[in-house]
Amino acid sequence: MLNRVQHNSLTLKRLQSFEMRLLGLNSLAEMIEFILGQTPALFDLDVVSLCLIDPKNEIADYLDSDNYGFRNREGLFLVNSELQVRNSFVLSSQPFLGSYQTAVCEQFFSESSLQKPASVVIAPLIRRDKYLGSLNLGSYRTDRFIQGMATDFVEHIASVIGICLENNLNVETMRRTSLVDPLTGVNNRRFLEQRIEEELDRSQRDREPLSCLFLDIDFFKRINDGFGHQAGDHVLTLVAGAIKKQLRNNDVMARYGGEEFVALLSQSDQRSAAEIAERIRVSIANLGIEHADQSIPVTISIGAATYQPNRSLKKRVPDIALQLIQAADTALYEAKRNGRNRVEHGGLVLALEPAQA
């Protein structure tokens, strides 16, 4: 009897610790990583997975924007239909509990695992009568989760996770709305202004170069005047998508204004930046854009600049950010002056000398 009391007391402390840490996390990516990484040890489980319903790929976009490698994260599943989760529960809000049944459980546990759990709990994550996903717990012991066992503990955890998930999704939606250009779907200038200093900080810490591309669609006013503003919007959207396709997941891209875009290329020196810029230029020239049965030729001019950290000089990040953008912008004007549909590099931006008192 004493052992049971001590066990329950320890479980309660673990649950309280779990809740406090979960509620203190600041992003969706952090929440997912905490659940998948910490839950097994906290509650003596062999397998933990998380299934999230993502019909519009919004969760995938949020995680991509945080550079979280969710596609390769063991135990995380994104599904595009609520029915894929809802149909697994006989009673809409009650967890599935008992021995591992392939027909019910295989979509909630990794196929790559060498050993399947012997007993499982699959608990729905529900908020305001809406399915958000499921929390899936597994044990190699057949007697860990058996039918008829009380599920209050698991339902409480699922409820807390559901609340945190809803809150994080709301925050991510608001953040995306305020930092994403609604026409092209890429980040806006405000986002760039926040991220460039973060990228420069990282560049300085790692002693790795950071390159900036300033991109401008050639003769865009002619497109609007000759084909109409709807055609112009169509061109902007396709060009933004083509640029993004040539960038890596950890690169930063933003619509700077009008027909201008900026890309920050982490760990990219002058040569690498020139190669990426040229790939972008070629891909835009080969787009073959059509609108209302009309072919619209589109090219782009690109200016590049590269920041190279200097160990011996003090770094003033805001000044360097401004200098890097200006150097890339100057190179862009050089590309325009030299005939357009070309790439020009503005050279290296070095750390500035410390300001004199």
Results as ranks from 00 to 15, higher is better:
residue 274 A to T: 13
residue 57 N to P: 01
residue 306 T to E: 05
residue 138 G to L: 11
residue 253 M to C: 12
residue 10 L to W: 04
residue 13 K to T: 13
residue 195 R to P: 00
residue 274 A to N: 14
residue 32 I to H: 09
residue 229 H to A: 03
residue 14 R to F: 07
residue 130 K to E: 15
residue 52 L to M: 08
residue 230 Q to H: 11
residue 34 F to Q: 10
residue 7 H to V: 11
residue 307 Y to P: 07
residue 301 S to R: 08
residue 230 Q to S: 04
residue 231 A to I: 09
residue 57 N to Q: 02
residue 97 L to E: 11
residue 117 P to T: 09
residue 117 P to A: 09
residue 7 H to M: 12
residue 251 D to Q: 10
residue 51 C to P: 03
residue 257 G to R: 07
residue 346 G to I: 10
residue 72 N to P: 02
residue 17 S to H: 15
residue 53 I to G: 00
residue 145 F to E: 05
residue 216 D to G: 11
residue 265 L to V: 02
residue 244 K to V: 02
residue 121 V to L: 13
residue 296 I to L: 12
residue 85 V to G: 14
residue 207 R to S: 14
residue 332 L to Q: 08
residue 341 N to E: 09
residue 341 N to K: 13
residue 307 Y to W: 15
residue 87 N to W: 08
residue 252 V to G: 05
residue 24 G to S: 15
residue 236 L to I: 08
residue 11 T to V: 09
residue 163 I to S: 06
residue 158 A to S: 15
residue 94 Q to T: 07
residue 274 A to G: 11
residue 352 L to Q: 14
residue 331 A to S: 00
residue 310 N to C: 11
residue 10 L to C: 04
residue 335 A to G: 05
residue 347 G to E: 06
residue 258 G to C: 11
residue 188 N to S: 10
residue 86 R to T: 00
residue 162 G to C: 06
residue 170 N to Q: 14
residue 18 F to P: 14
residue 141 R to G: 09
residue 30 E to T: 07
residue 356 Q to Y: 11
residue 245 K to D: 09
residue 81 S to D: 07
residue 20 M to P: 06
residue 154 V to F: 12
residue 286 N to T: 15
residue 217 I to E: 08
residue 41 A to I: 10
residue 86 R to S: 00
residue 355 A to E: 15
residue 142 T to C: 12
residue 139 S to F: 10
residue 32 I to N: 12
residue 347 G to M: 08
residue 142 T to I: 12
residue 170 N to I: 10
residue 190 R to S: 10
residue 52 L to Q: 00
residue 273 A to S: 09
residue 242 A to D: 02
residue 139 S to H: 06
residue 320 I to N: 08
residue 212 C to A: 15
residue 143 D to G: 08
residue 133 G to K: 12
residue 327 A to Y: 03
residue 345 H to S: 13
residue 196 I to Q: 01
residue 343 V to F: 13
residue 304 A to K: 02
residue 241 G to V: 01
residue 330 T to S: 14
residue 132 L to G: 05
residue 289 I to E: 12
residue 139 S to P: 14
residue 243 I to S: 08
residue 84 Q to C: 04
residue 187 N to W: 05
residue 31 M to Y: 10
residue 131 Y to D: 03
residue 46 D to R: 07
residue 329 D to C: 03
residue 283 S to Q: 03
residue 316 R to T: 09
residue 97 L to R: 04
residue 15 L to I: 13
residue 91 L to K: 14
residue 55 P to N: 05
residue 171 V to S: 12
residue 226 G to F: 12
residue 237 T to Q: 14
residue 65 S to G: 05
residue 184 T to K: 03
residue 180 V to T: 15
residue 353 E to C: 04
residue 314 K to L: 00
residue 241 G to Q: 10
residue 37 G to A: 13
residue 80 N to T: 00
residue 23 L to C: 14
residue 248 R to E: 04
residue 18 F to L: 06
residue 100 Y to D: 03
residue 2 L to D: 14
residue 166 E to W: 04
residue 108 F to W: 05
residue 167 N to A: 01
residue 204 Q to P: 02
residue 309 P to C: 05
residue 294 Q to R: 15
residue 292 A to G: 01
residue 121 V to T: 09
residue 286 N to Y: 06
residue 230 Q to R: 08
residue 49 S to I: 02
residue 114 L to W: 12
residue 215 L to C: 10
residue 112 S to C: 06
residue 59 I to Q: 00
residue 90 V to A: 03
residue 144 R to C: 07
residue 159 S to V: 00
residue 167 N to V: 00
residue 273 A to W: 01
residue 177 T to W: 09
residue 214 F to G: 05
residue 294 Q to G: 08
residue 165 L to H: 02
residue 176 R to V: 01
residue 100 Y to R: 02
residue 292 A to I: 01
